[in-house]
Each structure stands twice: as C-alpha cells, then as structure tokens.
Amino acid sequence: MSPALKEVEKGSNGQSAPVQTSSGFSTKDGLAQDLFVVLQGLLDQRRVESGLPHPGAPATLQVVETPELLGALHSLQETTPAITDNSNVIDLRGRLQQALGAGQDKGRVFGRAEEDVIDVIAMLFEYILDDNTIPDAMKALLARLQIPMLKVALQDREFFSNKSHPARQLLNNLARAAIGWTEGKGQNGGLYNRISDIVQRILGE
C-alpha cells in the first residue's frame, strides 16, 4: 500500500459537530482537513520524485469551480462504458480537462485541492486494481465506482479521515466480499450479481 493510502486507512471516528474550514469543506474538529494536508504533502513528494509539475493556478488562469467539476463528472458517469480492462484506472484528470476545456495552455485549471482529491482517489483505485486477491471480473465492477467515489470525496473531505464514512464502508465491504469470489463460480453467481446490482444502483442514482 502507498504511504498516502496508509494515511487514509488510519482514519478518524470523531463525532463532534462539523466546522467550516478555510478551504470551504465541512469537517469535524478540522481532523479531515489536517489529514488532507498530510495527503497533499505526500502527493507533492510523489510529484517531485516523478518529475511532475506542482499543481496550483497562476493568477492569470481561471480556476474551474467545484460545482462545474461535479457536473462534468456526472456527465462522464453517464457516458463512460463498462470497464473490461483492469490494468489501468480511468484517466479522469485527462477526461475532465477535455470535457471542461481545462489545462495550462487553455487558460483554465483545477484548484489545488480538487487536483489532489483526483490524485488520491486515483491512487486508491490503483491499489484496488493491483490487489491480486480480487478476481479480474470483480475488479471490473469495482473500477466503475471511481467516478462516484470522486464525487463524494470532492464534496466531503471526511471521506479520507473517517473510517465509518458510508462511502468508505461500502467500498471496503465490496472489496472484501469480492476476495471470497472465484472465477469458477461464473459471472452468474449470486455474489457477482449482488455486487453488480449495487454498482449499477450507485451509477444510476
């Protein structure tokens, strides 16, 4: 597991009242915001090691606001076909830039926090798809949850810090259940159909 994902898995179960942070996201006692700052530091280190540019919008560029980003994700969720190749996570950054006409050369960029959320969710699904204990057919189902999980994380930063977050619990439970399924049972097996139904309901609703 990557260092960033280890930080995510530490989690937090605080039950205090939500407070508003400077980034505009509602958190509890700032714990979600603090953890996200840690994740941002880890992502910066990863970018430096990979020779990638540091995110952020120069004053001359327009930042794509979160509601517009969520709208683009909703459209992508409706038009993205079922994934059959489990070797790669969906390149949501590239697809979103194309859909929104964003990029340094186009005068519009994603905000720092939004870019980091996209990267962390991508890392999470890379980890799932790299897990040899999950059969390929199940990976194809779980991979379809990348867009819905990104939509949740963009709106609720507690997705990263709270182990009891409903979306986190759902993804974890589906991944655990998938480990117990084998290709020999066929894609018409009860467990496969049950997970498929859940994924389809999430995508549809």
Score class of each variant (00 low, 15 high):
75 S>L: 14
87 S>G: 13
102 A>H: 09
145 L>Y: 04
96 L>D: 09
87 S>K: 14
148 P>D: 01
78 E>H: 04
21 T>N: 03
32 A>S: 05
102 A>W: 06
52 L>H: 10
70 L>M: 12
68 E>N: 08
44 D>Q: 09
97 Q>R: 14
126 E>I: 07
62 Q>P: 08
135 P>W: 00
38 V>P: 00
87 S>H: 11
76 L>W: 05
103 G>L: 13
51 G>V: 02
120 V>H: 01
139 K>Y: 06
123 M>W: 09
30 G>W: 01
97 Q>Y: 09
39 L>A: 04
52 L>Y: 05
71 G>T: 10
78 E>C: 09
112 R>V: 11
39 L>D: 00
20 Q>E: 03
29 D>H: 01
80 T>H: 13
49 E>D: 08
53 P>S: 11
152 V>L: 00
152 V>T: 05
43 L>H: 02
40 Q>S: 08
94 G>R: 13
42 L>W: 05
114 E>M: 11
88 N>Q: 15
62 Q>E: 15
105 D>I: 09
29 D>V: 00
153 A>G: 03
146 Q>E: 05
116 D>T: 11
98 Q>G: 09
141 L>C: 03
102 A>D: 10
66 T>D: 08
133 T>M: 07
147 I>M: 01
130 D>Y: 06
29 D>M: 02
128 I>R: 06
144 R>H: 01
48 V>A: 08
117 V>H: 11
24 G>C: 02
133 T>E: 14
145 L>V: 02
100 L>E: 10
44 D>K: 08
92 L>S: 12
27 T>M: 00
19 V>G: 01
55 P>H: 11
82 A>D: 14
80 T>Y: 10
137 A>K: 03
53 P>C: 12
128 I>N: 02
31 L>H: 06
58 P>I: 11
122 A>E: 14
45 Q>H: 07
66 T>L: 12
139 K>A: 00
108 R>L: 10
24 G>F: 04
23 S>I: 02
98 Q>I: 07
126 E>S: 08
24 G>W: 00
112 R>G: 03
49 E>G: 00
81 P>M: 14
130 D>K: 08
104 Q>M: 15
45 Q>W: 01
59 A>S: 13
61 L>T: 11
88 N>R: 13
109 V>A: 08
25 F>R: 08
100 L>H: 13
140 A>N: 09
69 L>K: 07
123 M>Y: 04
67 P>F: 06
94 G>P: 08
54 H>I: 05
138 M>F: 04
142 L>Y: 01
41 G>Y: 02
85 D>G: 10
42 L>I: 01
30 G>P: 05
79 T>K: 14
97 Q>D: 10
149 M>P: 02
131 D>W: 06
101 G>M: 12
149 M>A: 12
87 S>Q: 13
